[in-house]
């Protein structure tokens, strides 16, 4: 959890807006540090977290969360965190064995035309499962769905339309019905495509998800090129619905990722240049 980002977003683990769909996207840079921020943030806020970790192993997320002061293994044992390790689940499907024991959630690998229904069912069952009234089961706050990252699904052959359907269903369930939050990461390639006629799946996905979300954090490399002391810039964009219609607000920051956190500052005010 980065405290500087909390003050930018005006949220603390004790009080944050519910029912938000946060989109994290990146281009020529790596925005995965923000996923770790949100993971530790919502775990501290005592939310029930469903994490779809599709790109890295559990130990990777666990090691970083340890540095940020949150233990994923403990949260998992307590039932606060439900972790889908995509790499582990996919192996039994990609290399067929006699006894297939993988969970149903990654079924789209078997036949991508099916879409992401099974994955959605996994999400729904894990966020809506209340303790069943058992004794000794801790009560958790509103559910949160984190996805790292959505564009891997495209690489695995799922169509962008199916991913948009998936995110819409999740939004209906988690944000509207249960008043929880969603954080999704989309990674785009290279330069912004000028001609929209091409079949850029991830560009289309980014546009579609930007349309659905209420807050975007768009991470980019510096437009002037690579720098060792400033890792890039992040554009924060709120879309608030007020009585008088849509209202958007934008802020631009530069950032640097440290060993145990990240610092955000106004453009041009890095300690390296001042």
């Amino acid at each position: 959890m980065f405290t500087e980002l909390n003050s930018i977003l005006n949220a603390t683990p004790d009080s944050f807006t519910q029912g938000e769909f946060i989109l994290v996207s990146d281009r020529q840079s790596d925005a995965s540090f923000l996923i770790h921020h949100f993971l530790s943030f919502y775990l501290r806020a005592r939310c029930k977290v469903c994490f779809l970790g599709l790109v890295q192993s559990f130990s990777h997320y666990s090691a970083i969360s340890q540095r940020l002061g949150v233990s994923l293994t403990q949260a998992r044992e307590k039932g606060q965190l439900i972790f889908l390790e995509g790499l582990k689940e996919s192996l039994s499907i990609l290399i067929p064995q006699e006894t297939t024991t993988g969970s149903q959630a990654m079924d789209f690998l078997r036949d991508p035309t099916v879409g992401l229904q099974r994955l959605y069912e996994f999400v729904r069952s894990s966020v809506s499962s209340d303790g069943g009234g058992e004794e000794g089961v801790e009560e958790w706050g509103p559910p949160v769905l984190l996805v790292d990252d959505v564009s891997v699904l495209l690489s695995l052959g799922v169509s962008a339309g199916a991913v948009l359907d998936f995110s819409h269903y999740c939004r209906a369930t988690v944000c509207s019905q249960l008043q929880g939050n969603i954080v999704m990461l989309v990674r785009c390639h290279g330069e912004e495509a000028e001609d929209d006629g091409s079949d850029e799946g991830s560009e289309w996905l980014l546009k579609g998800l930007t349309h659905q979300c209420s807050l975007t954090l768009h991470v980019q490399g510096l437009p002037t090129g690579y720098c060792r002391d400033i890792h890039g810039q992040v554009e924060v964009c709120w879309r608030r619905r007020r009585g008088d219609g849509q209202h958007t607000q934008k802020k631009l920051f530069q950032y640097k990722v440290h060993d145990k956190g990240a610092s955000f500052f106004a453009p041009g005010t890095s300690s390296a240049v001042l």
């Binding site: 996919s90 192996l91 290399i95």
Partner: peptide, 17 residues
């Protein structure tokens, strides 16, 4: 177009363990 990326995903899964 997704064959190589799917293979690399499987390769990563295999190597990480």
């Amino acid at each position: 177009s997704h064959a190589l990326t799917t293979f690399l995903y499987g390769l990563r899964a295999l190597l990480r363990s």
